Amino acid sequence: MTNGAIRHMALFTLKHNSGSAEAAAFLKDGEEILSFIPVVANFEVLLQISVKCDFDYSFSMEFENQEAYDAYNAHPDHQRFVRERWETEVLRFQEIDLMES
């Protein structure tokens, strides 16, 4: 990450059982939809393995700057994914936004 760049991470647990076809579909669809938004860089789907964290998955992505991050949040594909999938399939989550100091 360069100065001004933002790493956005959404840690979450799905309503679906870990390893289920529904969980796999959610992760695949999230990656396909969100990573194709032009301002998104280095999109990753990650599996949580620490016993110190009680979330199961994470979407991690980077943005060049605050303007790119704002454009992502306002993008219709992101908003549709949140409305149609995130709000209906995610049990709980935490967002973390990081910038180099």
Rank of each mutant, 00 (worst) to 15 (best):
P38A: 02
I6C: 06
T2G: 15
G19K: 07
F59G: 00
L34R: 03
M1K: 08
Q94H: 11
H16Y: 13
V82S: 04
F81C: 00
I37R: 00
E87H: 11
A74K: 08
F81S: 00
R83S: 12
K15S: 12
H78E: 02
I6S: 02
F36G: 14
I6W: 03
V51S: 15
D56A: 10
E62Q: 13
G30Y: 07
V40T: 14
H75P: 03
S20L: 07
N73E: 08
I6R: 07
Y57G: 05
F55N: 08
S60A: 12
G4E: 07
A41G: 13
M1Y: 10
A71S: 11
N73W: 07
S50C: 13
F59I: 01
V40N: 01
D29I: 08
N65I: 01
L47P: 03
E32K: 10
H75T: 00
L11R: 04
K28M: 11
L98Q: 09
D97K: 04
I96V: 14
T88M: 10
S50F: 09
L47F: 14
A68H: 12
G4C: 09
Q48F: 08
E22P: 04
A10S: 09
L47D: 13
L46H: 10
P76M: 00
I49V: 15
E32T: 12
A23M: 11
N65S: 10
R85I: 07
Q66A: 11
Y57F: 12
K15D: 12
E44I: 04
W86Q: 02
D70S: 09
S60T: 06
L14C: 06
F55L: 10
V40Y: 04
D97I: 02
K28C: 12
D97E: 13
P76K: 01
I37Y: 00
E67N: 08
L98R: 07
S60H: 01
G19H: 11
A41C: 15
F12N: 04
E100Q: 15
E22W: 06
V45P: 05
I96W: 09
E100F: 10
Q66T: 06
V40C: 05
A10W: 10
F43V: 03
D70R: 03
V39G: 01
I96R: 10
S50M: 10
D56W: 02
I49Q: 14
E89Q: 15
R85L: 11
G30K: 00
E89T: 07
V51P: 15
R85T: 03
A24S: 13
D56S: 13
Q94R: 08
Q48D: 12
H75R: 01
F81P: 00
